[in-house]
């Protein structure tokens, strides 16, 4: 048979794996594996090769209409260019922060921006209360408002060391270094096995073509 090699058509915002590997903790083959995952996610609802918020939520919850405060914020942080969609470069750079080998400073900064809901440059007490309440609302944990206030107060007095009613980056860094478990969600062990989960079919098919 005759195999006609077509030039691979990439999604909008595609960047060379070598470039992305140089800027992130991923290897070139891991970036290629992430591209397989990216293509799947970005074509799950609309086939435009970009990840929309609904597609992100569908991937996280298997439900495109489920709203979640943190899924919204994480999507916004992935959307580095702030144009309402996540392209391949943004996807890889953002996931890079969650790699087990990413610098802890990057994880601390990402978490700070995540919790700084209103993007004022500080985590405010109101924001902390809002996050805890939103989470309790969606979970099966039933805690009274008094108990929530007590928990928030205790955390706040521990974190707001300057006592000015807001947590700045410096206080946040001190706080998470004191309680490193707070960063556990900032590391995704899956990212170390990404080439096993998403082998690059493109590369293997090219090898076969050469052999033929």
């Amino acid at each position: 048979g005759c195999f006609c090699l077509k030039k691979t058509k990439h999604t909008p915002g595609y960047e060379e794996p070598t470039v992305l590997a140089a800027e992130t903790p991923f290897t070139v083959s891991e970036v290629e594996a992430l591209y397989e995952l990216y293509k799947k996610l970005s074509n799950s609802i609309t086939s435009d090769g970009l990840i929309h918020k609904e597609e992100f939520q569908l991937a996280l919850f298997r439900n495109r209409n489920r709203r979640n405060l943190f899924a919204d914020r994480i999507f916004d942080l992935f959307d580095i260019k702030r144009n309402g969609v996540v392209d391949f470069g943004e996807f890889v750079r953002s996931l890079g922060v969650f790699h087990p080998n990413a610098p802890i400073e990057d994880k601390i900064e990402f978490a700070f921006r995540l919790y700084d809901l209103r993007q004022t440059g500080f985590i405010e007490r109101e924001e902390l209360k809002e996050m805890v309440s939103a989470l309790l609302h969606e979970s099966e944990l039933q805690l009274s408002d008094d108990v929530v206030e007590m928990i928030v107060d205790k955390t706040w007095s521990d974190a707001d060391t300057k006592g000015d009613g807001k947590i700045d980056r410096e206080e946040w860094k001190e706080f998470v270094l004191k309680y490193p478990s707070l960063l556990k969600n900032m590391t995704l062990p899956y990212l170390k096995d990404i080439t096993m989960a998403f082998p690059s079919f493109v590369l293997s098919s090219e090898v076969e073509d050469t052999e033929i």
């Binding site: 995952l37 799947k40 996610l41 799950s44 991937a59 996280l60 919850f61 298997r62 979640n68 405060l69 943190f70 899924a71 919204d72 994480i74 996931l95 969650f98 919790y115 902390l128 996050m131 805890v132 989470l135 309790l136 969606e138 979970s139 944990l141 108990v147 007590m150 928990i151 928030v152 205790k154 955390t155 706040w156 521990d158 309680y179 478990s181 707070l182 556990k184 969600n185 995704l188 899956y190 990404i194 989960a197």
Partner: peptide, 24 residues
């Protein structure tokens, strides 16, 4: 009460990105 408010937040499913890697 030794619960840390940020620890409670980490229970949120929205903060768990592992869903991105699950087979759909």
């Amino acid at each position: 009460c030794n619960l840390n408010a940020f620890d409670i937040i980490s229970y949120s499913s929205g903060f768990d990105l592992s869903g991105l890697f699950e087979e759909k």
